[in-house]
Structure formats: structure tokens, C-alpha cells
């Protein structure tokens, strides 16, 4: 299947897999810093390896996206909506790469061992520096909130395309497009 009005099947698989992972990640992150219960520990144990997995998949996805352009948006979409669509997509790409890097960097700056479970250990990517830790830790929080807001806009817009405009944009990612 390589119709120009749907995303490549590989891109669709990556999209839905990563959507699930990123949503999980955002909820795990928000939950683990707001509880003193034992779930703090196992949420943290999920957060780090999941974040690195998202980082690796995001790089693969970015590479694929740059070599396999997305289907064009409908010609009758208002310009501001097209601009918003492009900007929010690139923002999502930027965040799915930046957030894991910032998390990795902040643990490095805080001189924490970057453990992924099962004895896996990542090397530090920044020298130990508590001031850098503090700035990155705050950035990690606020960019995560921005990520969630961008996700809400993305989901709302996708549903608007699917339910109101019914212009095939949502189907270009679900792949379930029925012939008109």
C-alpha cells in the first residue's frame, strides 16, 4: 500500500506505537513526581528505559519522515490551520527527541547513575553540575507539560478532521479510509 493520501504503513505503525508510549510516559512522569507511595519507585523504573526507547524510535521516525513526505493537507484548509498543523508536528518531533535527552542530561548533571534496569547503564552525557541539573530538571517538567498540551491539540485537531471536516486527514493515519 503506497497511496499518496495515506501515510506509509511503517509510519503508521510507528505513530500509533509511539502515541501509546508517549502518553504512557507523560502520565508515568506526572504520577511518579506527585506520589510518595511505592509506585514512585516502579514508575521511575519504567520512566527511564521507556524514555530511551522513545528517543531511539523518534530518531528512526524522523529519518523516515524526512525521506518519506507526509500526504498533503486538503487544499481547502485555511492557511492558519495548515501552519498550525505543520508547526505542531515539528514541535512534537522536537519534544520527543529533546525530552529524553534532557532527562538523560539532567541525570548526568545531577551525577545520578543512568540506570535502565537489568544492569543496563548509560554513560553520562554532561559533566556533574548541580546548577545545570536544576535548569534541566525544570525544563524537563515544563516541556513535558507543553508536550501534553500539544498532544491535546493534536488529538482535538485529528478528531475535528475525522468527525467534522471528514476530509481524509485522520484516515491518512488510521489507514481505514473507505472509498468515497
Amino acid at each position: 500500500m503506497s497511496r499518496s493520501d495515506t501515510f506509509h504503513p511503517f509510519a503508521r505503525v510507528l505513530h500509533w506505537l509511539m502515541a501509546l508510549m508517549i502518553l504512557t510516559m507523560l502520565f508515568v512522569g506526572a504520577g511518579m513526581v506527585s506520589t510518595v507511595e511505592t509506585k514512585h519507585d516502579w514508575l521511575l523504573a519504567i520512566h527511564k528505559p521507556l524514555g530511551i526507547t522513545i528517543f531511539v524510535l523518534a530518531l528512526i521516525r524522523l529519518g523516515f519522515r524526512l525521506t518519506h513526505p507526509a500526504p498533503p493537507l486538503p487544499a481547502d484548509m485555511p492557511l492558519w490551520q495548515k501552519l498550525a498543523a505543520h508547526a505542531s508536528h515539528w514541535l512534537l518531533y522536537a519534544l520527543m527527541i529533546a525530552l529524553p535527552l534532557i532527562g538523560w542530561g539532567m541525570l548526568s548533571a545531577g551525577n545520578y547513575p543512568v540506570t535502565l534496569g537489568g544492569g543496563l547503564l548509560l554513560p553520562p552525557i554532561l559533566p556533574s553540575d548541580p546548577l545545570v541539573f536544576a535548569w534541566l530538571r525544570e525544563a524537563h517538567r515544563y516541556l513535558a507539560w507543553l508536550f501534553f498540551l500539544t498532544f491535546l491539540a493534536h488529538m482535538g485537531a485529528a478528531l475535528m478532521h475525522g468527525l467534522i471536516r471528514r476530509d481524509g486527514v485522520l484516515q491518512s493515519m488510521t489507514g481505514g479510509r473507505t472509498p468515497d
Partner: peptide, 29 residues
């Protein structure tokens, strides 16, 4: 890559409910 993504199908019915569904999904999340 120059073709349109297809003509818009019939105008949607129950638009208010559709908007409500979208709002619910966003607000619920």
C-alpha cells in the same frame, strides 16, 4: 503528490454532538 486528498464527503450530521465528543475527549484527557 499533487492530487488532492479527495473531495469532502457529505456534510456531517449532528454537528453539535460531534463537537461535544471532541471536547469530551480533550477535556477527559
Amino acid at each position: 503528490m499533487t492530487d488532492e486528498t479527495g473531495p469532502r464527503s457529505r456534510p456531517p450530521t449532528h454537528t453539535a454532538w460531534r463537537w461535544a465528543l471532541i471536547g469530551l475527549a480533550v477535556a477527559g484527557s
